[in-house]
Design a protein around this nucleic acid. Sequence first.
DNA 1: CAGTATCG
DNA 2: ATAT
Length: 237
Amino acid sequence: MDMKGLQLSLSVPNQASSPANPDRAQEPRPATQETLAPGALLLRGIAAAFVPILLDDLARIVAEAPLRHMKTPSGLRMSVAMSNCGPLGWISDRAGYRYSALDPDRGRPWPPLPASFLQLAQSAAAQAGFPDFVPDACLINRYAPGAKLSLHQDKDERDFSAPIVSVSLGLPAVFLLGGLRRADRPSRHLLQHGDVVVFGGPSRLRYHGILPIQAADITAHPQLENIRINLTLRKAR
DNA sequence: CAGTATCG
DNA sequence: ATAT
């Protein structure tokens, strides 16, 4: 049977609807914000004005520190390709999850955190009630169609008082936001190009994840053809 | 357990 | 959805 047709006909609970008018599908969306949970805020479209400089900086970063598929501690390949910038980078291998000042693939420091990343993250954090956010790590995630990130907690940082700031570019994704226990049923939220999620305070340790990405035609940015890029800024130390 | 396999 |  045609499972794709069936899935397209099903509504996704708790998920925002897409624009009905195709002519407006890639217009800049007005900046709106939605509280997903206490301490978790979705800022729709706020990265739009930053996109050209973000992509320019991103191209230089991944030219120096290439995206790669890390391994889980159990030795399995992650479907999301990752790199980092900033003083610290999140890495995963058989030795576990941790932050490292050196890119293990190159034996060199990660590229610097660009001003564009820092300014966007601090602006988003301030709007969410975290005016003093100073990230020291940015994880870069590249999702091709089919890539996903199953439900997990960000708990490798020393300082849980700082929020996580997550920037979405390119293909849309369904974001799962769970509770503090893995068994808590997640809510679902559509993340689109230019959206930023900030989660901190009582939501800092919520389980979260991304459903498998679906291919689509976004057309606006050749660098984002058929991929989703997620920038996740953190204070690791 | 940031993945995958298997089950009803 | 559930085990791991």
